[in-house]
Design a protein around this nucleic acid. Structure first.
Length: 271
DNA sequence: CCCGATTCCTGTAGGC
DNA sequence: TGCCTACAGGAATCGG
């Protein structure tokens, strides 16, 4: 599920809703999601104020007065703030009760998401030191992609979905950005020119910014911190549209598997 | 080193 | 209706 725009949307909602709140009690409803949930963390988290909430890649970072929390929503995870006493649903795995009575609740049917506690931010960032550049930062530019891709045969779609290269771009936005840039997803990344990488950088930034502005993409079950869906799915040009008409030239959209992931493109607009 | 395949898990859609 | 299979937004890990 959540790629960068969905995580950004969730973080924006959480900032509004719970920054400055104190966590009074924590409950783990199971002892692991993707990774183990250590019960020893509970005492470290309780009575801590959530001073700041930020995003790095597809991760949500909660800066506590002492220590910090790192959340990953995986494919089906959501982090919502609900009224006190709201009934627990199936697949609700973690509750954090706030001082004003509301509840921060982590829900994740497939349990590919995770929570980790760290004593300090240095340790947290050390755990994700292998991550690549932020796509909406200055460091993400045509030169960077061009240099890093030389002599590589990897398909460009897999290249831009590699979190060690650039973070936050998942299957949906990779397909959409390649369509906007007019590049076929299976093109070897090492054979793409600097000029075309310039177009790709602009396309990735444009698609992510538009998706953020629309509150993300809700294909199936994404909901933000206020349990509201996103609207960017209405703007998808190729993702999930195999056999439908290309919005630019009316040619039938094609699909193929790349790195095990379904990939969609227009055979006429993309080369 | 670079790839693709596999793996974690549940829900859902589609074929029969 | 029910049973079975394939597939889904992520990403670490394994093996060729």
């Amino acid at each position: 599920m959540p790629e960068l725009p969905e995580v950004e949307t969730t973080v924006a909602g959480l900032k509004r809703a719970i920054e400055g709140q104190t966590i009074v009690s924590v409950r783990f409803y199971r002892d692991n999601i993707r990774y183990p949930l250590d019960k020893a963390w509970i005492a470290r988290i309780e009575q801590q104020c959530i001073a700041r909430i930020t995003r790095r890649a597809k991760l949500i970072i909660m800066h506590l007065d002492s220590g910090c929390l790192l959340w990953h929503l995986g494919m089906t995870g959501s982090l919502r703030v609900s009224a006190s006493g709201e009934a627990k649903r199936k697949h609700d795995h973690i509750d954090m009760q706030l001082a004003d009575g509301r509840l921060l609740r982590f829900h994740d049917p497939r349990r590919f998401g995770y929570l980790k506690w760290f004593a300090n931010l240095d340790d947290l960032f050390a755990s994700i030191a292998h991550y690549g550049v932020e796509p909406l930062s200055e460091a993400f530019n045509a030169d960077f992609l061009y240099q890093l891709s030389r002599n590589k045969k990897q398909a460009v779609k897999n290249f831009i979905m590699n979190q060690c290269v650039v973070v936050g771009v998942g299957n949906i936005y990779a397909c959409e950005a390649l369509f906007l840039a007019g590049i076929r997803p299976q093109t070897a990344c090492g054979s793409i020119s600097l000029t075309r990488y310039q177009q790709l950088v602009e396309a990735i930034q444009q698609v992510l910014q538009q998706a953020i502005a629309q509150g993300g993409t809700t294909l199936k079950d994404f909901e933000n911190a206020e349990a509201k869906p996103g609207y960017f799915q209405q703007s998808l040009a190729v993702y999930g549209r195999a056999g439908e008409a290309c919005p630019r030239c009316q040619t039938s959209i094609s699909s193929l598997k790349l790195g095990g992931r379904n990939s969609f493109y227009c055979p006429r607009c993309q080369h």
